[in-house]
């Protein structure tokens, strides 16, 4: 599946808008994400960060503009299943399936969507559970795990589909500080492995450490796209400066 055009961006967004009725949740956003690039999306609550990354796997279909992923135009004609094999997602609330064990959570999609055998899928799942540091929890059920462990399962479950892009929507927002450290270290590890990542987070230190670029949003618009060292020291806009002041006050 190697393309010769590896210099082509992994994700390319042009003039994309998303409306909820009259409300403009995304207002003509433009950006590219290169292969292997790590993007962190920052912005005040309600600025459209979740909406933005949900349009990337078409859980929220965009209304206007174009979205290209891996050279393919994504629109209503795209097979959503193919798209979601390529783009994995981790949610703030984990969204694990409570009636399935950890292992079953991980092998369901590989078996049903990618038609892997159970043995194959199980081997893969164990590998990723090992990678996220919970190889011994495979037979437990989600409610028997702590929040941090559940989020690790959610990450492993997404990785089992072996996506080319990972989307994270505030993966640590529901966790206590100790658990945050664990999950962040796993994401550090993933970043090193070079998977293309778009991550919404409020973990400033983490953003600074791993982000290649920061997308800063406000009121549905992308206000600026800057490398982290510039963003955290000398943001271009007042709005970004205000946001940072608020975030860093604590």
């Amino acid at each position: 599946m190697q393309h010769e055009t590896t210099d082509l961006p992994m994700i390319s967004v042009r003039g994309m808008s998303k409306l909820f009725g009259e409300f403009v949740a995304l207002d003509r956003v433009d950006f590219d994400v290169s292969r292997g690039e790590k993007i962190v999306v920052l912005g005040p609550s309600g600025s459209g960060k979740s909406t933005l990354i949900r349009t990337l796997n078409r859980i929220e279909p965009h209304d206007i503009g174009t979205l290209t992923i891996n050279g393919k135009l994504i629109n209503e004609k795209t097979d959503p299943i193919q798209l979601r094999c390529m783009v994995g997602m981790v949610f703030q609330n984990y969204n694990l399936f409570p009636h399935l064990s950890v292992l079953e959570n991980c092998i369901l999609a590989p078996m049903r969507v990618k038609h892997m055998s159970r043995i194959e899928a199980t081997a893969l799942a164990r590998r990723y559970l090992e990678q996220v540091g919970i190889p011994d929890q495979a037979d437990k059920y989600p409610i028997q795990l702590s929040g941090g462990q559940q989020q690790r399962v959610a990450i492993a479950r997404a990785l089992c589909m072996q996506p080319q892009v990972m989307l994270f929507d505030e993966p640590t927002a529901a966790l206590d500080p100790e658990a945050i450290v664990g999950v962040v270290s796993i994401m550090d590890e993933l970043a090193e492995q070079g998977i293309t990542t778009v991550c919404v987070t409020h973990e400033m230190a983490f953003s600074r450490r791993i982000a290649d670029r920061i997308i800063f949003m406000d009121q549905g618009k992308i206000v600026e796209i800057t490398p982290p060292e510039t963003f955290f020291t000398t943001p271009k806009t007042d709005r970004a400066q205000n946001f940072l002041n608020q975030m860093l006050r604590y």
Binding site: N57, I59, P80, I81, Q82, L83, R84, C85, G88, M89, F91, Y94, N95, L96, F97, L108, A109, R112, V113, A154, R157, A158, M161
Partner: peptide
């Protein structure tokens, strides 16, 4: 949401 994000 979680299930459809997995491509089911």
């Amino acid at each position: 949401l979680g299930a459809s994000a997995l491509g089911l």
